Computed example of a mutant assay.
Amino acid sequence: MTYSDYVIYVDESGDHTLTAIDRDYPVFVLDFCIFRKDSYANVVAPQVQAFKFAHFGHDIVVLHEHEIRKQKPPFVFLKSRDKRDAFMDGLNRLIEQADFTIVAAAIHKERLTQRYAAPGNPYEMALTFCMERAHAFLRDRGQHNMTTHIVVERRGKREDDELELAFRRIRDGANYVGEMPGFEIIFADKKTNSAGLQLADLTARPIGRHVLDPAQPNRAWEIIEPKLRRSPAGAVRGWGLKVFP
């Protein structure tokens, strides 16, 4: 087996249910963060560890966007303005400097249910869009026929089994690209202290907020936007970010 030079870490923002749509956040975002393995191992992961040592004294803490935003343990210290400013400045700088490419899909659930009598599963739609674009990213670099692992967090046996089935169906040809045999899916325990999974978690929600209200000031989006895959002419929509419908 020949491994590619890349690894992909995945996280999501919002839920993919269509029965009870959150009016404040009616989108589902799937976020693929694509890293070159040498850069990830030698630069990105050590920088994430160094950031944790600086703010916590150890590297066991897991950086979760929701807990940071809500200032839940172990992020209660963020209630202090000075500490919060220093932490967020450092975190923004960490993400800004980290070398990775984002391919994301945002499914606008309200529009989806309004436009289609029998809408598809938002997760499977987003997964298809992201896999197609990640495959194109790898193809442009001559890496698409090598094995590239897509790492996702475990959510529960039923959900994981459904995701693996959808993944294999998409990989084997249920998409606009055709077969994508190089992709393999890896399920990681939620407690896995993976720098890549944490960066995917930290970058997913700002994409959703931007999709819902592009005019709203969004510092996180300003940092993330340059990392999105682009067309040769510099276009992001359809290349690094697919919004549907």
Rank of each mutant, 00 (worst) to 15 (best):
P74K: 04
V103W: 02
P26R: 12
Y3V: 01
D172N: 15
D82L: 07
V48A: 04
A105D: 11
F53Q: 06
Q71C: 13
Q198I: 09
L163R: 15
M88S: 07
E225C: 01
A204M: 10
R93N: 13
T101R: 04
R115D: 12
P26Q: 13
I8H: 00
I21P: 13
L78K: 05
R141P: 06
D85C: 00
Q47D: 15
A41T: 10
H64G: 13
N145L: 15
V29Y: 10
R154Q: 15
M180L: 12
A50L: 01
F129V: 08
L228Y: 08
N175Y: 04
R111M: 13
S231M: 00
F77M: 10
N193T: 10
R141T: 12
T192D: 08
A233Y: 09
K157D: 15
Q216V: 11
L138Q: 10
R219C: 06
P26Y: 02
V27D: 01
K227Q: 08
A136H: 14
L78R: 05
D22I: 07
F100S: 05
M131S: 11
H144V: 06
E132M: 09
I185S: 03
E184T: 14
V103I: 15
A215K: 13
H108W: 05
R155M: 04
I207W: 01
M125G: 03
L30P: 03
A215Q: 12
R93G: 02
L197M: 11
I107H: 06
R84D: 04
H144P: 01
R154W: 00
F187V: 09
